[in-house]
Design a protein around this nucleic acid. Sequence first.
RNA 1: GGUCUCGUAGUAUAACGGUUAGUACAUCGGGUUUUCAUCCCGACAACGCGGGUUCGACUCCCGCCGAGAUCACCA
Length: 477
Amino acid sequence: MEKAITRFAPSPTGYIHIGNVRSAIYPYLVAKQTGGKMILRIEDTDRARYVEGATELIEDTLKWLGMNWDEGPEVGGEHEPYFQTERQDHYIAWAKKLIAAGRAYADPTTPEQIEEYRAKCNAEKVPFLYRNFRPENTPEWEIGIPLRFKAEPKEYSWHDEVMGDMHTGPEVLDDIILIKKDGLPTYNFAHIIDDEEMGVTHIMRGVEYLSSMPNYLAIYEALGLNHPKFVSLPHILAPQGNKKLGKRDGAKSVVEYRDDGVLPEAMLNYLACLGWNDGTEQEIYTKDELIEKFSIDKIQTSGARYDEVKLLWMNGQWIRRIADEQGIDALYERTTGFWPGVDASDDYKKRVLAIIYDRLKVLSDLRTMTGYFFADPKVDMSMILENKFLKKFAPAELKELLEKSIAKLSATEWNADALQNALNELLAETDKKPAELFSLIRLSLSFAPFSPALNLTLEVLGKDISLKRLQAVVDNI
RNA sequence: GGUCUCGUAGUAUAACGGUUAGUACAUCGGGUUUUCAUCCCGACAACGCGGGUUCGACUCCCGCCGAGAUCACCA
């Protein structure tokens, strides 16, 4: 397979969110699959929207997902620099070729005048095409005057790797701005130059660029360049409505999910499979499997709705997969920072993790689900007295049951199997149903709405603490 | 409005002229000695509409309807 050079070219205007990481994932997978390279290029030509720190945020996001770029900021590469604002001389050099060929002109028209043209067209209900208002006398171009492309209206046909064969009429060609008044190029021009100079083979970007394609094709043509393959990626849709998911719809940043305890494996897996599948019924893919199985021709043509519930389900699958395949120690390493703010040994926390991990959807669930393993819970008798299995018993009877339990457990060897045997015997001796006896003991130990299997909870809590907590309830009845 | 794109259950998808239209999430029901979860079993639920082509259309063609993208000195 030919080595693909792909790129992720974000604009540093803020964080990377769920709706736009995928346009980094697919290029990454294609580059890795073919033994090529993924370039990270920062498209920072819009200085008004530039956000301090956004580049670092973008880099953090990619690193967290395990997608290291082969060329770009930090790592360098043979096509430096990778910030567009540092490549101004490149754009100007290419622009001069267009000027020399008579395919670009300096446009002295004021924004007010342009606005007038536009209003006139709107009033007459005809499409606004700047080329119909091309100024007759244009000055020599210099920085400070916008440079426009001189369009030659014609039909274009091209192939999009996702959308198929495309065709448009001449009416979409226009004199687009190549270089702005501030001397920096527009996206429309800059990306073509950079992709050419950097040897990009696949331009993978959102479908919103599809309607600009003829204008790009015209520029490639005027410059005498062959264009890369075009891969239009359908949008990820917001949970409500049919619009593409954006920050206004509350699209959370990717690192926010990291901070909630979503695993990068799950995020990558979910996003890669939103709008792509390999034709089998496989749902869980490792990064390596994605690299191996990804194929551009199986990318969907329609938008896919973002479903956080499924992401979280997948995260649960990944939590279990890591624990089951790599062991609790491996999962434990991922849990740093997600425990309740208490001091406890790594060993103890691992034992807690081992009995609770199959209930986690996100790692931060540890904070809310494990409190009673680290501190005595607040005794709340209403939880016991109003419990659906326990409310039929008189408090005195509950007290007696607990006392019998304490006596039985005190004489038991403290390991999971022995504890289970003791609990079973207790069931027989007291002639109670599991739902009754176990609920009572469980609530007395945890005062939590749910907890792991009773014998395991007892084992991890330890004999002293367990008996002490049961006694505390007896004292409160 | 012009141009372009898209249209299978609530959601993500499979099917590439012939299937009881498959799978997963969600939902509902059941099972695994308590709870919550895992795991297992089951149920509900879809080819936007109308014409063609064909022995036979989710699959091909046309029209309609619906949804979206884009028409910036933003990317």
